[in-house]
Design a binder for these strands. Sequence first.
DNA 1: TAGGCCATCTGGTCCT
DNA 2: AGGACCAGATGGCCTA
Length: 234
Amino acid sequence: MVAAAAAATHTDVLDEGENKCAITMLKLKPIEIDSNHVVISTNTVTPAIQQSNPIKRSRKSAHPSKTIQTSTESSFISLLTKNTKNISIKELITTSTSTDDDSLSLPHFDEQENTNDDPDTGSDDETSITCQSVTSKRSRLTSDKRLEANARERERVHNLTAAFESLRQLIPMYGDQQKLSRLSILRIACSYVLVLGALNEIDFSQEQNAYTFNECFHILSSTILSELKRKQPK
DNA sequence: TAGGCCATCTGGTCCT
DNA sequence: AGGACCAGATGGCCTA
């Protein structure tokens, strides 16, 4: 199936016989979709994805300890930029660096007693006062809530990744060695929908142009070729 | 080495 | 009110 689709997509213009062959092959694809499109499941796919890519998982798992401070800093500065338009960039930098310890590397908990002995965070110069006045307007999550939210967000993104992987396996020109970006997957999938629609005499195009099958197939072939050009080594 | 891509964290906003 | 969703920021990996 993959090989057949791959062969077909390397020919932009097909004659009648090849078209019939392509139609026959492409008609097999919806059957696969019908049988597989419900594979995605929050409870089943995500663990598989997590285990299928241990290198990335382990690599990314080491990420938070190294970047939480800078990430929080950037978010903090961007938040300050949003909320306090009268603060200059220089002041923002001063604020972020003057409180660069626990106050930035960890969330500021509402119910946590701020009996911090740290002289830096305890210093009540103008910048720290400004910082406190800004942070008091924000709704902070507790550490447990923050971790739970992070876990949910990871789960959500993992599901998204799993859905992309599932979609990638359904589109033509997918080989085991093929690596397509999410954007490429979406582009090819859109073109593929046009082809499937043409096969069933349904116009899925946004403009309702009623593309012919040849036009749809050409669009699909062009899309695949253009996306592969981005990936394939020269 | 620059750029593309992705995972993760985070805070804000929307929805139920 | 809590969870889902979203966007911004950041760093790591890979490739041309």
